[in-house]
Design a protein around this nucleic acid. Sequence first.
DNA 1: CGATTTTGACCGGCGC
DNA 2: GCGCCGGTCAAAATCG
Length: 310
Amino acid sequence: MDYSSWINSSLDLNLNPDSRVSEEIPKRELESNFFSLDLKSSPARQETSGNLEEELKRVSAENKKLTEMLTEMCENYNTLKNHVSEYMRKNNNSGKEMSPPKKRKSETSNNSNPIRAYGNNSESSSTDEESSKKPRQEIIKAKITKAYFRTPASDTSLIVKDGYQWRKYGQKVTRDNPCPRAYFKCSFAPSCPVKKKVQRSVDDQSIVVATYEGEHNHPQPSQMETTASGSSRGMTHGIAPSSSSLRHSPPKVDMSRSKSFNESTNSIPKLDSSEVPQVLVEQMASSLTKDPNFRSALLAAISGRMSHKN
DNA sequence: CGATTTTGACCGGCGC
DNA sequence: GCGCCGGTCAAAATCG
C-alpha cells in the first residue's frame, strides 16, 4: 500500500488566488471578506441595503463552500486514518503469520526484546566481531531499531537517507520476502559496530524497512549535509529523516514502537500514538512548502495584507 | 586508481 | 547428521 495513494497530500487547498476558488469567487470579494469589518466601518462605503443583502448572500454561499471543503478534508482525514489503522493491523497480523514458531531466535528475539527501540545506550559496547561470536543471549542485547522509509517501488537500490555513511557488504533473498535484503556496515568509522539491514516491506513495496543493530560510536557525518547511504550513486528520494536526524541514534520515522505495542497488547493500533500522523503531517507540510503555487499565494497574501494595512 | 557495489561461495545456528 | 536459512566474506566488476 502506498500512503500517497490514500490521500493527496497536497490537500488541494486552493490557496492560489488564481485557482478554483478564485474562479468562482472574484478576488475582490475574497478581499472584502477578509477585511469586512474595516469596510463596514469605512465612511467611504455608501452601500444600499440591497447591496448589503447581496453581499451577505455571497458571504453565506462562500461560508457554505468553505464548510464543504472542510467536511471533505475531514472525510479524507478519516479515510486516511482508517487506512493507516488497517495497514498497521495488517502488518501486525502478517508479522505473526510470517514468523512461524520455528523462526530463528534472533528474529523473534528482536521483537520480544524488552529493550525499547530508542531505549538505553549502555549495553551496546560490543564490537562487530564480538557480537558475532558471543552467545545469542548477548547478541539480543545489542540495540536494535527499525526505521521505515517510503521510496518509489521502482527504486531497487535499497538505499535510504539516514545521514550516515554505509558500505554494502552483502545482499540476500530471504525466505519470507521476495525482495532482496541488503546488508550494510557503517563506513564512516572503521571501529563503528553498527550494521543495518534494508529490505522492502512484503505488504507495501514502497516501504523500505531498515533494521539497525548496535549504536554509532561517532557523531553523525551528515551534520554538515545529508548524504546518501554509502554514496550518492543511484540515490533516489525516500522519506527524509525527521528533524531528529541530528541525534546520535538512528534517526527518522520509527514505527517499531507501535509494532511492539501491538504485539504486547494484541489490540488495534492507536492512531494517536502520533507516529504515523506525524509522518503525514511532515509529508503534507513538505508538499505544501515545495508547491510553487502555495508559495506564490502566500507571498501574494502577505504582500496584499501589508499593502492593505499601509 | 581507489572506493564502492555486486554476487556467488562459505560459515554457523537451528530444527528435524 | 543433514538440510535449510540468514549472515558474512571476498574476488570481480563498476563507478567517479
